[in-house]
Amino acid sequence: MNSELPTRYEIRTERASARSAPSRYGAVFLMFARNSLVRDMTFRANFIIEVISALSWMSMYLGFYILIFEYTPSIGAGTGWGKYQFFAFLATTLFVNSIVEAFFMPNTEELSELIRSGGLDFALLKPIDTQFLVSLQRVDWSSLANFLFAACLLGYSLLKIGHVPGWPQLLLYPLYVGCGVGMLYSLMITLAATSIWLGRNQTLYDFWFYITNFSRYPREIYSGTYGTPLNIAFTYILPVLLVVNVPAWLMVRPLNAEEWSLAVYALVATAACLALSRWVFGRALLSYRSASS
Protein backbone atom coordinates (compact mmCIF):
# COMPACT_ATOMS: atom_id res chain seq x y z
CA MET A 1 0.00 0.00 0.00
CA ASN A 2 1.46 3.29 -1.04
CA SER A 3 0.66 6.18 1.22
CA GLU A 4 1.18 8.68 -1.55
CA LEU A 5 -1.71 7.34 -3.57
CA PRO A 6 -4.82 9.42 -3.17
CA THR A 7 -7.24 7.69 -0.85
CA ARG A 8 -10.32 6.62 -2.63
CA TYR A 9 -12.33 6.19 0.50
CA GLU A 10 -12.46 9.57 2.01
CA ILE A 11 -14.32 10.08 5.18
CA ARG A 12 -17.58 11.54 4.11
CA THR A 13 -19.20 14.23 6.13
CA GLU A 14 -22.79 13.70 7.17
CA ARG A 15 -24.91 13.07 4.13
CA ALA A 16 -26.86 16.25 3.51
CA SER A 17 -30.16 15.40 5.06
CA ALA A 18 -33.34 17.11 4.09
CA ARG A 19 -34.14 17.57 7.74
CA SER A 20 -32.14 19.05 10.54
CA ALA A 21 -30.83 16.87 13.36
CA PRO A 22 -33.30 17.99 16.05
CA SER A 23 -36.30 17.20 13.89
CA ARG A 24 -34.84 13.81 13.01
CA TYR A 25 -34.35 12.99 16.70
CA GLY A 26 -37.90 14.21 17.32
CA ALA A 27 -39.24 11.94 14.60
CA VAL A 28 -37.33 8.97 15.99
CA PHE A 29 -38.65 9.64 19.48
CA LEU A 30 -42.22 9.87 18.19
CA MET A 31 -41.69 6.54 16.49
CA PHE A 32 -40.48 5.04 19.78
CA ALA A 33 -43.49 6.42 21.61
CA ARG A 34 -45.85 5.21 18.92
CA ASN A 35 -44.38 1.72 18.70
CA SER A 36 -44.48 1.41 22.48
CA LEU A 37 -48.13 2.40 22.51
CA VAL A 38 -48.95 -0.09 19.77
CA ARG A 39 -47.17 -2.73 21.82
CA ASP A 40 -48.94 -1.76 25.05
CA MET A 41 -52.28 -1.93 23.30
CA THR A 42 -51.53 -5.45 22.05
CA PHE A 43 -51.31 -6.53 25.69
CA ARG A 44 -54.21 -4.46 26.93
CA ALA A 45 -54.98 -6.51 30.04
CA ASN A 46 -51.41 -6.20 31.18
CA PHE A 47 -51.49 -2.48 30.56
CA ILE A 48 -54.59 -2.04 32.69
CA ILE A 49 -53.04 -4.07 35.50
CA GLU A 50 -49.98 -1.88 35.41
CA VAL A 51 -52.08 1.26 35.60
CA ILE A 52 -53.99 -0.13 38.55
CA SER A 53 -50.80 -1.21 40.27
CA ALA A 54 -49.19 2.20 39.87
CA LEU A 55 -52.29 3.87 41.25
CA SER A 56 -52.62 1.50 44.20
CA TRP A 57 -49.03 2.02 45.33
CA MET A 58 -49.75 5.68 45.22
CA SER A 59 -52.95 5.34 47.21
CA MET A 60 -51.13 3.27 49.82
CA TYR A 61 -48.51 5.96 50.24
CA LEU A 62 -51.15 8.64 50.37
CA GLY A 63 -52.92 6.57 53.01
CA PHE A 64 -49.72 6.44 55.06
CA TYR A 65 -49.36 10.21 55.01
CA ILE A 66 -53.03 10.71 55.83
CA LEU A 67 -52.37 8.49 58.84
CA ILE A 68 -49.36 10.59 59.85
CA PHE A 69 -51.39 13.78 59.61
CA GLU A 70 -53.94 12.22 61.95
CA TYR A 71 -51.27 12.59 64.63
CA THR A 72 -49.55 15.85 63.69
CA PRO A 73 -50.57 19.16 62.12
CA SER A 74 -47.30 19.55 60.22
CA ILE A 75 -44.07 17.80 59.32
CA GLY A 76 -41.44 19.69 61.29
CA ALA A 77 -42.19 22.66 63.54
CA GLY A 78 -42.66 25.93 61.69
CA THR A 79 -41.67 24.50 58.34
CA GLY A 80 -44.96 25.27 56.68
CA TRP A 81 -45.43 21.69 55.53
CA GLY A 82 -49.00 21.21 56.67
CA LYS A 83 -51.19 18.46 55.33
CA TYR A 84 -52.09 20.04 52.00
CA GLN A 85 -48.72 21.70 51.45
CA PHE A 86 -47.22 18.27 51.88
CA PHE A 87 -49.74 16.75 49.49
CA ALA A 88 -48.70 19.34 46.90
CA PHE A 89 -45.13 18.22 47.58
CA LEU A 90 -46.22 14.62 47.10
CA ALA A 91 -47.91 15.55 43.82
CA THR A 92 -44.64 17.07 42.63
CA THR A 93 -42.76 13.90 43.59
CA LEU A 94 -45.31 12.01 41.54
CA PHE A 95 -44.93 14.24 38.50
CA VAL A 96 -41.17 13.79 38.48
CA ASN A 97 -41.26 10.07 39.18
CA SER A 98 -44.00 9.25 36.71
CA ILE A 99 -42.07 10.99 33.94
CA VAL A 100 -38.88 9.18 34.89
CA GLU A 101 -40.72 5.87 35.13
CA ALA A 102 -42.52 6.36 31.83
CA PHE A 103 -39.61 7.44 29.67
CA PHE A 104 -36.34 6.43 31.27
CA MET A 105 -36.84 3.63 33.79
CA PRO A 106 -37.83 0.86 31.32
CA ASN A 107 -34.81 1.71 29.19
CA THR A 108 -32.15 1.93 31.86
CA GLU A 109 -33.46 -1.30 33.34
CA GLU A 110 -33.19 -2.79 29.87
CA LEU A 111 -29.69 -1.42 29.44
CA SER A 112 -27.96 -3.81 31.80
CA GLU A 113 -29.83 -6.65 30.14
CA LEU A 114 -28.65 -5.37 26.76
CA ILE A 115 -25.11 -5.28 28.08
CA ARG A 116 -25.39 -8.77 29.52
CA SER A 117 -26.84 -10.31 26.37
CA GLY A 118 -24.79 -8.31 23.89
CA GLY A 119 -27.91 -6.67 22.47
CA LEU A 120 -26.27 -3.28 22.83
CA ASP A 121 -24.43 -4.11 19.59
CA PHE A 122 -27.38 -2.97 17.55
CA ALA A 123 -27.62 0.36 19.29
CA LEU A 124 -23.94 0.96 18.63
CA LEU A 125 -24.42 0.35 14.90
CA LYS A 126 -27.03 3.02 14.39
CA PRO A 127 -26.10 6.42 13.02
CA ILE A 128 -27.73 8.17 15.93
CA ASP A 129 -26.56 9.11 19.39
CA THR A 130 -26.25 5.87 21.35
CA GLN A 131 -27.24 7.40 24.66
CA PHE A 132 -30.37 8.87 23.09
CA LEU A 133 -31.24 5.52 21.56
CA VAL A 134 -30.82 3.40 24.67
CA SER A 135 -32.41 5.99 26.97
CA LEU A 136 -35.63 6.46 25.10
CA GLN A 137 -36.42 3.50 22.92
CA ARG A 138 -39.24 2.28 25.08
CA VAL A 139 -41.99 4.31 26.67
CA ASP A 140 -44.00 2.86 29.51
CA TRP A 141 -47.30 4.59 28.99
CA SER A 142 -48.94 3.05 32.03
CA SER A 143 -46.65 5.02 34.32
CA LEU A 144 -48.30 8.20 33.15
CA ALA A 145 -51.41 7.20 35.10
CA ASN A 146 -49.70 8.62 38.16
CA PHE A 147 -49.09 11.82 36.24
CA LEU A 148 -52.84 12.35 35.98
CA PHE A 149 -53.28 11.35 39.61
CA ALA A 150 -50.64 13.93 40.54
CA ALA A 151 -52.43 16.65 38.58
CA CYS A 152 -55.63 15.98 40.51
CA LEU A 153 -53.81 15.82 43.84
CA LEU A 154 -51.98 19.09 43.18
CA GLY A 155 -55.17 20.86 42.13
CA TYR A 156 -57.05 19.61 45.18
CA SER A 157 -54.22 20.54 47.56
CA LEU A 158 -53.89 24.06 46.17
CA LEU A 159 -57.63 24.50 46.52
CA LYS A 160 -57.45 23.42 50.16
CA ILE A 161 -54.48 25.68 50.91
CA GLY A 162 -56.21 28.54 49.19
CA HIS A 163 -52.93 29.67 47.64
CA VAL A 164 -52.81 30.65 44.01
CA PRO A 165 -49.31 30.63 42.53
CA GLY A 166 -48.46 33.58 40.31
CA TRP A 167 -47.74 33.38 36.60
CA PRO A 168 -43.95 33.24 36.99
CA GLN A 169 -44.32 30.32 39.41
CA LEU A 170 -46.72 28.50 37.11
CA LEU A 171 -44.28 28.88 34.23
CA LEU A 172 -41.24 27.92 36.29
CA TYR A 173 -42.93 24.86 37.75
CA PRO A 174 -42.72 22.67 34.62
CA LEU A 175 -39.16 23.86 34.06
CA TYR A 176 -38.13 22.70 37.53
CA VAL A 177 -40.03 19.44 37.25
CA GLY A 178 -38.00 18.99 34.08
CA CYS A 179 -34.79 19.74 35.99
CA GLY A 180 -35.78 17.15 38.58
CA VAL A 181 -36.33 14.58 35.86
CA GLY A 182 -32.98 15.52 34.35
CA MET A 183 -31.13 15.02 37.62
CA LEU A 184 -32.76 11.67 38.36
CA TYR A 185 -32.19 10.50 34.80
CA SER A 186 -28.50 11.40 35.05
CA LEU A 187 -28.11 9.40 38.22
CA MET A 188 -29.96 6.48 36.69
CA ILE A 189 -28.06 6.29 33.42
CA THR A 190 -24.76 6.68 35.26
CA LEU A 191 -25.60 3.71 37.47
CA ALA A 192 -26.84 1.67 34.52
CA ALA A 193 -23.71 2.42 32.50
CA THR A 194 -21.52 1.13 35.31
CA SER A 195 -22.95 -2.32 34.71
CA ILE A 196 -20.63 -2.42 31.67
CA TRP A 197 -17.79 -2.55 34.21
CA LEU A 198 -19.44 -4.36 37.09
CA GLY A 199 -21.64 -6.89 35.34
CA ARG A 200 -24.93 -7.79 36.92
CA ASN A 201 -26.15 -4.98 39.07
CA GLN A 202 -29.48 -5.55 40.70
CA THR A 203 -28.26 -3.61 43.72
CA LEU A 204 -27.61 -0.58 41.58
CA TYR A 205 -31.34 -0.23 41.16
CA ASP A 206 -31.84 -0.62 44.86
CA PHE A 207 -29.21 2.04 45.28
CA TRP A 208 -31.09 4.30 42.91
CA PHE A 209 -34.29 3.72 44.80
CA TYR A 210 -32.70 4.35 48.17
CA ILE A 211 -30.93 7.52 47.10
CA THR A 212 -33.98 8.97 45.43
CA ASN A 213 -35.84 8.08 48.59
CA PHE A 214 -34.14 11.11 50.13
CA SER A 215 -35.72 13.34 47.52
CA ARG A 216 -39.23 12.34 48.59
CA TYR A 217 -39.27 14.49 51.72
CA PRO A 218 -39.06 18.21 52.41
CA ARG A 219 -35.51 19.42 52.79
CA GLU A 220 -36.27 20.79 56.27
CA ILE A 221 -36.55 17.35 57.85
CA TYR A 222 -32.81 16.82 57.43
CA SER A 223 -31.60 18.96 60.30
CA GLY A 224 -29.61 18.55 63.49
CA THR A 225 -26.20 17.04 64.05
CA TYR A 226 -26.64 14.26 61.50
CA GLY A 227 -29.24 15.87 59.29
CA THR A 228 -27.36 19.02 58.36
CA PRO A 229 -24.38 17.28 56.71
CA LEU A 230 -26.80 15.04 54.83
CA ASN A 231 -28.80 18.06 53.83
CA ILE A 232 -25.71 19.80 52.46
CA ALA A 233 -24.45 16.68 50.67
CA PHE A 234 -27.78 15.93 49.04
CA THR A 235 -28.29 19.55 48.09
CA TYR A 236 -24.91 20.51 46.71
CA ILE A 237 -22.98 17.35 45.87
CA LEU A 238 -25.61 14.84 44.82
CA PRO A 239 -28.50 17.26 44.41
CA VAL A 240 -31.42 14.88 44.94
CA LEU A 241 -32.96 17.24 47.47
CA LEU A 242 -33.47 19.84 44.76
CA VAL A 243 -35.42 17.43 42.56
CA VAL A 244 -38.79 17.83 44.25
CA ASN A 245 -38.23 20.60 46.76
CA VAL A 246 -37.63 23.48 44.35
CA PRO A 247 -40.73 22.95 42.19
CA ALA A 248 -42.80 22.20 45.30
CA TRP A 249 -41.81 25.52 46.93
CA LEU A 250 -42.91 27.33 43.78
CA MET A 251 -46.40 25.90 44.13
CA VAL A 252 -47.10 26.30 47.83
CA ARG A 253 -45.43 29.47 49.03
CA PRO A 254 -43.37 32.52 48.17
CA LEU A 255 -39.68 31.67 48.07
CA ASN A 256 -37.19 33.35 50.37
CA ALA A 257 -33.76 34.53 49.27
CA GLU A 258 -32.02 31.24 50.11
CA GLU A 259 -34.61 29.26 48.20
CA TRP A 260 -34.29 31.48 45.15
CA SER A 261 -30.56 30.99 45.12
CA LEU A 262 -31.07 27.23 45.41
CA ALA A 263 -33.47 27.48 42.47
CA VAL A 264 -30.73 29.07 40.40
CA TYR A 265 -28.28 26.46 41.63
CA ALA A 266 -30.70 23.71 40.58
CA LEU A 267 -30.38 24.84 36.97
CA VAL A 268 -26.61 24.68 37.13
CA ALA A 269 -26.72 21.34 38.93
CA THR A 270 -29.00 19.83 36.29
CA ALA A 271 -26.67 20.87 33.51
CA ALA A 272 -23.66 19.51 35.42
CA CYS A 273 -25.40 16.18 36.17
CA LEU A 274 -26.38 15.69 32.55
CA ALA A 275 -22.88 16.50 31.33
CA LEU A 276 -21.27 14.20 33.88
CA SER A 277 -23.59 11.30 33.13
CA ARG A 278 -22.92 11.71 29.43
CA TRP A 279 -19.20 11.55 30.07
CA VAL A 280 -19.54 8.40 32.20
CA PHE A 281 -21.76 6.77 29.59
CA GLY A 282 -19.21 7.49 26.86
CA ARG A 283 -16.37 6.11 28.96
CA ALA A 284 -18.34 2.97 29.77
CA LEU A 285 -19.11 2.31 26.10
CA LEU A 286 -15.39 2.12 25.38
CA SER A 287 -15.17 -0.87 27.71
CA TYR A 288 -18.18 -2.64 26.23
CA ARG A 289 -17.31 -6.25 25.50
CA SER A 290 -20.31 -7.44 23.51
CA ALA A 291 -21.28 -10.84 24.82
CA SER A 292 -21.78 -13.43 22.12
CA SER A 293 -25.43 -14.33 22.32
Binding site: E14, R15, D121, P127, S292
Partner: peptide, 20 residues
Protein backbone atom coordinates in the same frame (compact mmCIF):
# COMPACT_ATOMS: atom_id res chain seq x y z
CA UNK B 1 -21.04 9.00 8.79
CA UNK B 2 -19.49 5.55 9.01
CA UNK B 3 -22.51 3.98 10.62
CA UNK B 4 -24.66 5.07 7.69
CA UNK B 5 -22.45 3.18 5.25
CA UNK B 6 -22.28 -0.34 6.65
CA UNK B 7 -24.46 -2.92 8.33
CA UNK B 8 -23.96 -5.90 10.62
CA UNK B 9 -26.33 -8.86 10.70
CA UNK B 10 -26.01 -11.40 13.48
CA UNK B 11 -27.77 -14.70 13.08
CA UNK B 12 -27.94 -15.23 16.82
CA UNK B 13 -29.31 -11.87 17.85
CA UNK B 14 -32.30 -9.97 16.68
CA UNK B 15 -32.94 -6.32 16.65
CA UNK B 16 -36.53 -6.16 15.42
CA UNK B 17 -39.24 -5.31 17.94
CA UNK B 18 -40.46 -8.68 19.02
CA UNK B 19 -44.11 -7.85 19.53
CA UNK B 20 -44.59 -5.55 16.57
Amino acid sequence: AYRRRFALVMGQKNQLWWDL
